[in-house]
Simulated scan of single mutants.
Amino acid sequence: MLDPMTIAMLNHEPVFPDPNGATEDGLVAIGGDLSVERLREAYRQGVFPWPIPGLPVMTWFSPDPRLVLPLQPPNLSRSVRRALREHGLRITFDHAFDDVVAQCARVPRDGQSGTWISPVMRQAFGALHRAGDAHSAEAWLDDELVAGLYGVAVGGVFCAESMFHLRSGASKVVLATLMATLSRNGFRLLDAQLPSTHLYRYGGEPWPRTLFLDQLAEQRDRICLPTGSWRDVPPADPVSPTRRRRP
């Protein structure tokens, strides 16, 4: 049970306590709304919303360790490279943000009976997308959306939230292409938040929270891609060397 005497309660101000004071399972604070201003500040501080089922207030986390995918240089496993050579998919950005979030909430996942992406969360991230901070990557087979992911851009860091696929191998393609595109545009890190053996194929590393927060502080005020839609950002080829844009 949560102890309100030891966990920070958020008020109407979009501010957060130091994430280094989180509980053992990474809980930083409870309460507050999901306004664009609060979400922006949360991600700038290395904190993200993750509802606890049955709890009527929002909960905010900063886990330790943090799974991070360094984007320089690309480090892809053999199976990922094979999928990239054979996929035949078309990759876009910000062409179907709401559909990607809806599919992430809908597609069943191993070991999970429900989803944390509630209608309230979908509405909040939709607002963050329209404000130019949240973005999606989509994989299309002809005109069918077969995979996608969404997340939040914070300077030179992309904080990935969730991913889905309806076709085998499609999620590998969309993630690897996003990583290559971020790298080409000067991003340094992809924050995957929680440890996952699946993401080790892409060079994922479990970082101590202190290291992640230090790197985030260095990167969060950089401008890699302007705030706004990424619809016109061309996808990079993840199996070919890409020349990184100068910071």
Rank of each mutant, 00 (worst) to 15 (best):
A139T: 04
W140L: 01
D142V: 08
D142S: 14
D143A: 15
D143I: 07
D143L: 11
E144A: 14
L145C: 08
V146Q: 03
A147V: 01
A147K: 06
Y150N: 10
Y150H: 07
A153H: 08
V154C: 10
V154D: 08
G156S: 13
G156L: 01
F158M: 06
F158H: 04
A160S: 11
M163D: 03
F164W: 03
H165G: 07
R167C: 09
R167F: 09
S168N: 13
S168Q: 14
S171Y: 04
K172R: 12
K172D: 05
V174Y: 06
T177W: 09
T181D: 07
S183M: 15
N185L: 01
N185G: 04
N185V: 06
G186Y: 07
F187H: 15
F187R: 10
R188F: 05
R188A: 15
R188S: 15
L189V: 02
D191H: 06
Q193F: 05
L194S: 15
P195I: 03
P195V: 09
P195S: 13
S196M: 12
S196D: 13
T197Y: 00
L199A: 14
L199M: 12
L199R: 08
Y200I: 11
Y200T: 14
R201I: 00
R201L: 03
Y202H: 06
Y202V: 02
G203P: 00
G203S: 01
G203R: 12
E205N: 07
E205Q: 15
W207G: 04
P208F: 01
P208A: 11
R209K: 15
T210W: 06
L211W: 07
L213P: 00
L213R: 06
Q215G: 10
Q215N: 13
L216E: 03
L216T: 06
A217H: 12
E218L: 13
Q219R: 11
R220M: 06
D221T: 13
D221K: 04
D221P: 01
